[in-house]
Write a protein that binds this DNA or RNA. Structure first.
Lengths: 154, 154
DNA sequence: TCTTGTGCTCAACCTTACTTGAGGTCCTAC
DNA sequence: GTAGGACCTCAAGTAAGGTTGAGCACAAGA
């Protein structure tokens, strides 16, 4: 992984960061940043030497991408989540708010799935009933056949 | 996707299910079940015609795998999570409990990450401060350089 | 002048988690 | 007796999310 520490390179201008600096400050690999750019999730401008320069507001965007990655949200979804957040200038308060509402919806869904599974593990397996039929989470479509030989008690 | 409806085939014996039946009852594709078996996550016996037969307790295991998949837990992790749950017989109450404790730890970690991100979106972006420096979640390593041109207010 | 550091492009490769396809076996029904 | 359905194996393909490597450019320092 080619990740460079910030300080190895001087900023070209005060408000623009090199790819190495962005990598050091966000924890995203240089190659990942180029990949995100190609994917359309982030954007950069080029300096006189054809090197990428990132405005500071891109750091927040990249940080959000990294967090989303940690919890397994696909990049395609991020593209939609960021749809109304501009790439070419610092987003306004309203723009972030609009985007964050979409984010929250996605996060909430994910959290609820996990919470259901957690309570299943406590309330169903934990209690020892081991019932497949009674378990709404493990039978999402509720479409079990009921042909005999049901759940067994130990 | 080759998923068969239960009822298309008759069970060979009351307590053993064919791969098609298991697929219909768990929602997992037939090809996925074969893959899980090769991976070591599930197991089957063969009947006289070399066809897979699954004991009923395997349904629960597969259901848990499907749920874990929905929340993005890698199969490798499941292998560890299931390490002490036997494949060859219905797991005992204690065995499920031991395994479920490991599960709960993993789930809790994931849920906490999501909760932190949710509260960030409300408390930080939502409030409009847009502060990169003050945001613990977006700066996990807390390793930001502090070279001027800080977060901007709108 | 030569090396080192940072950056560039493009193509190939990698891992995870499966799916698809080719070619074959049984069994049942028409 | 042949068609169809469910199953088998093994090999190859796919999509996501990158990483790695080759080959090159430019700038600064020893």
């Amino acid at each position: 992984m080619t990740t460079y520490r910030s300080g190895d390179a001087r900023p070209a201008a005060d408000d623009w960061l090199s790819i190495g600096e962005v990598s050091a400050r966000t924890g995203a690999a240089v190659s990942a940043l180029r990949f995100y750019e190609e994917f359309g999730l982030i954007a950069s401008q080029r300096d006189g030497r054809n090197q990428r320069r990132y405005p500071r507001h891109m750091l927040r965007r990249i940080a959000l991408i990294s967090v989303a990655k940690r919890i397994g949200i696909p990049l395609q979804d991020l593209l939609e989540a960021f749809a109304d957040v501009p790439l070419d200038r610092p987003p306004s308060h309203q723009e972030w708010q609009r985007a964050s509402r979409g984010w929250k919806r996605r996060l909430e869904e994910r959290r609820l799935t996990i919470e259901r599974l957690e309570s299943e593990l406590t309330g169903c397996i934990g209690c020892g009933c081991l019932s497949m039929k009674a378990c709404a989470l493990l039978n999402p479509g509720d479409s079990l056949a009921d042909d005999g030989a049901g759940p067994r008690r130990l």
